[in-house]
Write a protein that binds this DNA or RNA. Structure first.
Lengths: 204, 204
DNA sequence: CGCTAATCTAGAACAAGTTTCAGACTTGAT
DNA sequence: ATCAAGTCTGAAACTTGTTCTAGATTAGCG
């Protein structure tokens, strides 16, 4: 897989300095987000931290939500790499998916503010961010299918995966806003993962 | 059920004029939301439309998100009333829940901008709005349990209901942001509702 | 009725996301 | 090396959510 397989398809290639600027911006964004979540990512501060003019920041990321969704794409790639190194060990597909999601969840717990910023941006995004949000969604789908160990999912299984993603996002939100405990998120994830067995074509 | 069963518990009773102001505000909010969604609900405009000073608006609803979540509570009550009059007719609990949610979905489709405003507010809400968001969640739970026809759900069934709510909210978001079609939302709802049969204690 | 505390109003002020603009700097092609 | 086109900078301006203030109004009470 080429290194930039996940970036937007037909945008003009960036010079090194531009690539460096982009990285500095994403780094500053993640850093500010880690401190204080969504609200702490202030565009003026991101611009200053990354040594870029405000107008330039807006040229790279046309809104705060775009910026945070891009930050999420970035983090997701990390996560996917990490997960690949240690694949889940569960016996059934449902177990492996639940295990994978719980592992991701634990990673998010280590940086709850960052999680807050990314997830809030993701669900708050309007139509103008659809392509980017979709990209995040596809990446998540790949991670789940990986955990299931499937290359040719049936439409039913894809539905189940979509529902799992819905649950994952929404459960994260309830956790981040303090309306659900970590234990409850775990239960919800395990509950929804049972859908996988239900849609397994070899279901006994 | 007393008329104000859903409002915050120990707040001082409102005078008639205050009650009227509150209604005017909620009405203006819903009206502006119906026009242009979340962004069209501007606090100055809400204040003007409802003939109330900006400061007063903020006394009644401490933020735009509070206002929109309250608007959602209001609409949910309507919806619940409407649904009660014509209970779903499906044979299994899963069918009835799916039928109920699809009916609610159709209602939202009639006012997509209003739906946008309410759902975005709901998922964007931070901890300071937790009580109100929780109230909406409980109301939704009641609607689903009603459709299932249960008074004493098992913990497993409550988990399933929570997962259904997660899916419901998240599927709405993907629809509102144009990343999923109406048909896909329908499929997702039907898929997640199969969890109900799975957790039915009398499951054969 | 007259008092006091709470509430409401109009409007200014502030905060942070976003836009705009003139001028300086880079880049790529010749 | 030079020119044109595109990019970056710094700063100001604009928008909308939110807060604050001083004075008018209202509600509840003796």
């Amino acid at each position: 897989m080429p290194a930039d397989a996940s970036t937007s398809p037909a945008s003009p290639p960036l010079t090194q300095r531009q690539e460096a600027r982009r990285r500095r911006i994403l780094h500053a964004s993640a850093q500010l987000a880690s401190r204080g979540g969504f609200d702490a990512v202030q565009m003026r501060e991101v611009a200053e931290s990354s040594q870029v003019a405000l107008g330039t920041l807006y040229r790279y990321f046309p809104s705060k939500v775009h910026l945070l969704v891009a930050t999420m794409q970035d983090q997701l790639e990390h996560m996917h790499g990490t997960l690949r190194k240690k694949p889940p060990t569960g016996r059934t597909a449902a177990e492996r998916v639940a295990e994978t999601l719980m592992r991701a969840f634990r990673a998010l717990q280590r940086e709850p503010h960052l999680a807050d910023a990314m997830v809030r941006a993701l669900t708050f995004a309007d139509r103008s961010v659809s392509p980017e949000v979709d990209q995040v969604s596809r990446q998540t789908t790949v991670i789940i299918l990986d955990a299931m160990g499937l290359d040719n999912p049936t439409p039913e299984q894809l539905s189940a995966v979509r529902v799992i993603e819905h649950t994952w996002h929404s459960a994260l939100i309830t956790w981040l806003s303090g309306r659900a405990s970590i234990a409850q998120v775990k239960i919800d994830i395990e509950t929804v993962c049972r859908l996988i067995d239900l849609t397994d074509p070899e279901h006994t």
